[in-house]
Design a protein around this nucleic acid. Structure first.
Lengths: 235, 235
DNA sequence: AATCATTGTTTGTGATCACAAAAGTTGAAA
DNA sequence: TTTCAACTTTTGTGATCACAAACAATGATT
């Protein structure tokens, strides 16, 4: 029997085209991103291997990769866990997002052609639809796709991996605000961004992206997460 | 016999306090950082294990970790190599450094106390000494330490891992300019940064850090690297 | 009752092996 | 000479095992 709190991980269908390590990596990455693993909970290789019904080897490699991306933390004890969050660290992560993503947006702007613009418009309207329904997970996913589509317009892009690392670290503690006021603001910011892109106005785009990030991030986690967020803020 | 060009890797003393994987990781990381491995050259686990006289296992883990940090690239063929550089990508990496590091500097400024200021001054004068002698490797190392000491003044720092990733990617292609004119500028920029820190002027600090990065980066690699830098720029 | 040494268990690390995919080589046909 | 198929070798992936360090539990001593 497990002495610690049990771990629930959403298992996706395993595609034979990808290696087991890749599948384990994606599964664990999603589990971290969606806050399925409690921060501070020790993760052991054999336990995860048992849950996912694979040998310890792919789990070892996936854990090391996630640790290298700052999604997991390896302590001196060689123990692996989701890093605990503090209010100050949360704020630093948000400010880092704003600095890097507004830079990435400005750098991508000159490369946005008609096709890319069409793709962005399509994502924008999909987000509007998802907001009508109120599907928060869908909104979050589409919002990521919108930002990714914007930054990857730059064919020499180098910051996306860094941005994804920040998303991973914020993931467990980040939810789109679900009250109507913030929804309204969100729509406006996206429209602002689209307008700035069409006018090729880099500065306006940075303003819009910054505002989108700042207003789109709101803490709405579970009580356990809220507790984990606060408990160590004095350290 | 090896069919490919042989790989020379500087082996450091192995400390019994660290695991073999950590030692392999640091060794390979240094090899990448100092451009000892030709971009595009395929790296095989067994070959590296043979060179470093360890089993394939630690090499596997170190390679995966370096790939997650964007220091190495895993192709679809499952082949691992140092990513090839292009002029555009080089430029993007430099601009990303400027954006992120000036942000990190501004965020660290409020936390710089007397002790940290003393440490920065000490590093600054050490850099001056190294420049008198003309020891480029020492200058590069001390310069990194200076930047690191500045950014880590912020106890809630989250961007250093991202910055180190950029350093790693630029490493093989980055050398401090060694003509006297640039040396002179470098000294000035450091002094500017120190002055901005003492005056707690965040904007002036960002200007100084940006200038330091922009002027401190100059391509001065080997002919092979220059060739590797250019050959694929059209792709 | 509290502290510390001791014992038993769990866990990460590193080595070795089997296997399938990829790369490299050879040789024949055009 | 060039092209393509068959064969051989190399290589990454994944599984299993041995071992030492870390952890948890137990018991003795003050």
């Amino acid at each position: 029997m497990d002495k610690k709190s049990p771990i629930k991980i959403t298992l996706t269908e395993r595609n034979d085209a990808v290696t087991i390590t890749q599948w384990v990596y994606q599964t664990l990455r999603n589990a971290v991103m969606y806050g399925e693993i409690l921060p501070g909970r020790a993760l052991t290789i054999r336990e995860l291997a048992g849950i996912m019904d694979v040998s310890p080897m792919p789990v070892r490699e996936a854990l090391r990769q996630l640790a290298a991306e700052n999604a997991l933390e390896i302590q001196g004890n060689r123990r692996v866990m989701v890093p605990k969050m503090t209010a100050m660290k949360f704020n630093e992560l948000c400010e880092a997002r704003i600095a890097i993503e507004s830079h990435a947006a400005a750098r991508a702007l000159p490369y946005i052609d008609g096709e890319r613009l069409e793709q962005l418009r399509s994502l924008d309207s999909l987000i509007d639809q998802a907001q009508e329904i109120g599907n928060l997970e869908q909104i979050s996913l589409l919002n990521q796709n919108f930002h990714r589509a914007l930054y990857t317009a730059n064919p020499h892009q180098v910051t996306l991996p860094l941005i994804e690392s920040l998303w991973l670290q914020l993931g467990p503690f980040m939810r789109l605000a679900n009250n109507e006021l913030d929804e309204h603001y969100l729509v406006d910011r996206h429209n602002e961004a689209m307008a700035a892109i069409e006018k090729k106005d880099a500065y306006a785009l940075q303003i819009a992206i910054s505002a989108d990030i700042r207003e789109g991030i709101a803490f709405a986690g579970t009580p356990e997460m809220l507790h984990a967020l606060i408990e160590n803020s004095g350290h």
